[in-house]
C-alpha cells in the first residue's frame, strides 16, 4: 500500500475530512472563546486585546496558515467527494428514499458546507482582511500595555448595525449547527473510533457542541444589533 493511498482511497478521503473537520472544530473553540470577550461589558477592551494577541505572535501566525490549509483541504475535498459520490448512481429512483433511514442534514453536508463557505468569504472580507492588511483605527488602553491595538470591536459594532448582515450571520450559524450535528460524530467515526463507550460520549458532546457554539456565535451579531453590548 502506497502512502498516498492512505489519503486518496475512498476511506482515505474520509480520513482527510475527519482530520480537517476535527481541526476546524478545535479552531471554533478558540474563535468562540475569544469572541465571547465582547460580553465583558468593558466597551470591547478585553476583546480588542485578545484579538490583538491572536495576530501578534509568530506561533499564532503559523497556526493561522495551518488553519487556512485545513479549511481549503476540507472544502475542496468535501465538494469533490460530493460530486464524485453523486455520479455513482447514474439512474436514480422513481421514489427517493428521502428520510426513510437517514437525517436530511446528514445527506446535505455539501449544501450546508457551501452556505458556510459563502459566509466565510463575506466574513473574511468584513473582518479578517481589514484586521490583517488594511488600516483600522487603533485604540490605546492605559493599563500596563501602552501599545495601540486595532479597534475590531468598533468594526463589529458598525458591521452589525446593518440588519441584513445579522440575518446572513444567523443563517450561517444555523447551517454550521446542522453541519456539526452530523459532522462532529461522523468525524470521529471516520477516524476509526468504534468503541461504544467513546461513541456514546462523542454523540452527547457533539449534540451539545453543535447547539451551544453556533448559538454563541449567532448571539454576537444579534447582541450588537440590539445594542446589548
Amino acid at each position: 500500500m502506497k502512502w498516498s493511498e492512505l489519503f486518496t482511497s475512498s476511506v482515505g478521503k474520509k480520513f482527510v475530512m475527519g482530520l480537517t473537520g476535527v481541526f476546524l472544530i478545535g479552531f471554533l473553540v478558540v474563535h468562540v472563546g475569544i469572541n465571547a470577550c465582547i460580553w465583558a461589558m468593558d466597551d470591547g477592551q478585553m476583546f480588542n486585546r485578545a484579538a490583538h494577541f491572536m495576530g501578534a505572535t509568530v506561533v499564532i501566525r503559523i497556526l493561522e496558515v495551518g488553519l487556512f490549509a485545513g479549511i481549503f483541504l476540507h472544502f475542496i475535498q468535501g465538494l469533490m467527494l460530493e460530486f464524485q459520490n453523486r455520479k455513482k448512481r447514474a439512474i436514480g429512483y422513481q421514489i427517493p428514499m428521502a428520510n426513510r433511514g437517514s437525517k436530511w442534514y446528514s445527506r446535505s453536508m455539501g449544501l450546508l458546507g457551501t452556505i458556510i463557505l459563502i459566509f466565510l468569504i463575506i466574513h473574511w472580507k468584513q473582518f479578517w482582511i481589514p484586521s490583517r492588511f488594511t488600516e483600522l483605527p487603533d485604540v490605546t488602553y492605559d493599563n500596563g500595555n501602552p501599545a495601540p491595538v486595532h479597534d475590531l470591536f468598533g468594526l463589529m459594532k458598525e458591521t452589525f448595525s446593518h440588519g441584513w448582515v445579522v440575518i446572513v450571520y444567523v443563517i450561517a450559524c444555523i447551517s454550521l449547527a446542522y453541519h456539526l450535528l452530523h459532522g462532529f460524530q461522523s468525524a470521529f467515526r471516520s477516524l476509526g473510533v468504534y468503541n461504544s463507550r467513546y461513541l456514546v460520549l462523542i454523540n452527547g458532546v457533539g449534540i451539545g457542541f453543535s447547539i451551544i457554539v453556533p448559538l454563541a456565535f449567532a448571539m454576537m451579531p444579534v447582541s450588537m444589533y440590539f445594542n446589548w453590548v
Partner: peptide, 13 residues
C-alpha cells in the same frame, strides 16, 4: 465504482 461513505446511516436502517 462504489461511492465513499459519509455515515448517513441509511445502510444500517
Amino acid at each position: 465504482g462504489f461511492g465513499s461513505c459519509t455515515s448517513t446511516g441509511a445502510c444500517e436502517a
